[in-house]
Amino acid sequence: MNRSGISRFFTSFPWFLLSLPALLLVWRLAADRVDNPVLLPSPNLVAESALELFGDGSLVADIKASLQRVFTGFFIASTLAVPLALLMAYFLPLRQLFLPLVTILRPIPPIAWIPLAILWFGLGDKPSYFITALAAFFPIFLNAFAGGIDVQPRHVHAARFLGAGRWLMVRHIYLMSALPHVWTGLRIGLGQSWMAVVTAELIAAQSGLGYMIQANRINLETQHVLTGMIVIGMLGALMTTALGWCERFVLPWKFQRQ
């Protein structure tokens, strides 16, 4: 094999096929070495745990509970954040009224709201809705706001020349100009919401993946903890991938570059 043949092999080999097996191998070796299933259960043990939790239906129930909280919170956040951000972008008084509040509230991490969430909403689904909505709100809001002020005067002028009235102008120019940013905000918001649900459930819930992890930690069932973590990672990756795939339908003009 000559030099260029070797380098071609190195750049064209589907390395990503190796990443998971490599991780499993390292994990396996490390687990053998640690030799303590509470500190680091082996992959086999975790696989058994996953089958067990799937089998008795508890894992599916936890996944459902978490997903429901994420999507509810995410839905609340988007229906509030997008219109509010756009209105603030388009109306100066609203912007001046709300922007200082947003600036102060934004740096407070969702986890810091958990005590208040429990005090206000008790335990159960409601505080989790509050936390997931809060986590999604700011990325959605800030991106939608950036989208709102991104409208180009030349597009507005052109549309006015072509006879666009107020409503058509909003729909075809303002909203379309904002859409790429809004979409980015929704994508980030969903991710943040997913991370926050686990946090919320660790503390303030009786079901869900976060709760499951917490309960098993106390029982020293580390293989279940790892199963929960892996499921969280895979579902998060799945959401990101699904949204990435949807993008070509939401923003088709960003996808046709040649």
Partner: peptide
């Protein structure tokens, strides 16, 4: 208004 048409120097097509 639509009784006048304007062609701008810089691209003002709607990218979307």
């Amino acid at each position: 208004g639509p009784d006048r048409g304007m062609v701008f120097q810089h691209n003002s097509l709607f990218p979307w």
